[in-house]
């Protein structure tokens, strides 16, 4: 019962986080590719409640930032004019969930622009880019994990059910795949493709590649489950009732793999998000100006950015709750799975 409650808590946490990213258009104040060339590397603005004269405002406000005289990246607050934050205001057009045309944003300013996480070199809003970038990165993680698990399930099931030379061949292949240095293989694959690819093609390319790479571990786990499930008494009993191999696999063996697959999914998704970030960071992922978490961080490759603009690191910090959520989910799924005897044996591997 307790395990179940913990599991629900992690699921709700992740649901909320993904919801925010999924409805990025609403939570982000601006379009992620919209540039504001007058304010590059603008630091995050702060909410205020008390103005320069010591008056209290019930509605939080910010001060607009303007460039300091004789500087190109130092800003000062214009404390004469408090800019009250407006909620549910109309702004840039976007498509909610990719198809619903919409103009409402959670918050915004009337006269000037609000940058809660600062801006990048082109004056693009970091918060908007973080939220929209999350859509790309998380989708890559989810789809990549989906591909990996499907391949892993098929291969593991074949190896476990048939045994013999097929099993040996597939398992040696799995060992080979686990031994390859994947980052460099990805470079090699990228080298075969044209220099400029459209964002959509680049996205699907990344998903396919990182999805295909990781099948070995889930395949080995599924094989283990299938092997031990085949010998369980209720499977043997069903064979005794005249069940065919197809029936046994579908009704008895496949459901046994579900908890291993779920746990693997919770482990793989953050791994693949990180893989997408690594590739994009190195410029092999989704091309600019499309935001992704790796793209956001890629300007950190310049030393001047690394030491001068601390808010460029914030996207990396924002990923922590996601990864924490998935790890918590994985461990509580594992705990639940251990309740069944055979899975606990698998985890002993």
């Amino acid at each position: 019962m307790r395990v179940r409650r913990v599991l629900t808590r992690w699921l709700v946490t992740l649901g909320v986080l993904h919801g925010i990213v999924g409805f990025a258009g609403f939570f982000a104040p601006y379009d992620p590719v919209e540039q504001d060339r007058k304010s590059p590397y603008l630091p995050p603005m702060r909410f205020h409640l008390i103005d320069g004269q010591g008056h209290f405002h019930a509605r939080p406000f910010v001060y607009a930032l303007k460039l300091r005289e004789g500087s190109f990246d130092r800003y000062v607050e214009n404390t004469t004019e408090p800019q009250p934050v407006r909620f549910f205001m109309k702004g840039a057009r976007y498509r909610l969930l990719g198809f619903l045309p919409c103009r409402r944003h959670l918050f915004g300013l009337e006269n000037t622009r609000i940058y809660l996480l600062g801006t990048d070199a082109y004056g693009r809003d970091q918060l908007s880019r973080l939220l929209f970038g999350g859509q790309v990165s998380l989708l890559a993680g989810l789809l990549g994990a989906g591909i990996t698990l499907s391949i892993g399930l098929c291969i593991g099931a074949v190896a476990g059910s048939f045994g013999g030379w097929r099993d040996s061949l597939l398992m040696r292949l799995a060992e080979l795949f686990m031994a390859l240095p994947w980052l460099y293989v990805l470079f090699a694959i990228r080298a075969f493709l044209p220099l400029a690819v459209s964002p959509l093609r680049a996205f699907f390319l990344i998903i396919t590649v990182i999805g295909i790479v990781g099948w070995a571990r889930p395949a080995r786990l599924v094989r283990g489950v299938v092997l031990s499930a085949k010998e369980r008494d209720f499977v043997r009993a069903a064979r005794g009732f005249g069940a065919t191999h197809g029936y046994l696999f579908r009704r008895h063996i496949l459901p046994e793999t579900s908890s291993v697959l779920l746990t693997q999914a919770a482990i793989l998704i953050p791994q693949y998000v990180l893989a997408e970030m690594t590739l994009s960071f190195l410029g092999l992922g989704v091309p600019e100006p499309v935001p992704s978490w790796g793209n956001l961080l890629s300007s950190l490759q310049q030393y001047s950015v690394l030491v001068s603009y601390w808010w460029i690191y914030l996207p990396a910090l924002a990923m922590v709750p996601f990864f924490l959520g998935y790890l918590g989910l994985a461990s509580s799924l594992q705990e639940r799975g251990a309740a069944y005897k055979i899975e606990s044996r698998i985890w002993g591997i």
């Binding site: 043997r236 009993a237 064979r239 005794g240 009732f241 005249g242 069940a243 065919t244």
Partner: peptide
């Protein structure tokens, strides 16, 4: 499979 039905364990 037919025979297995006749002999139950």
């Amino acid at each position: 499979r037919q025979v297995r039905r006749q002999i139950q364990l």
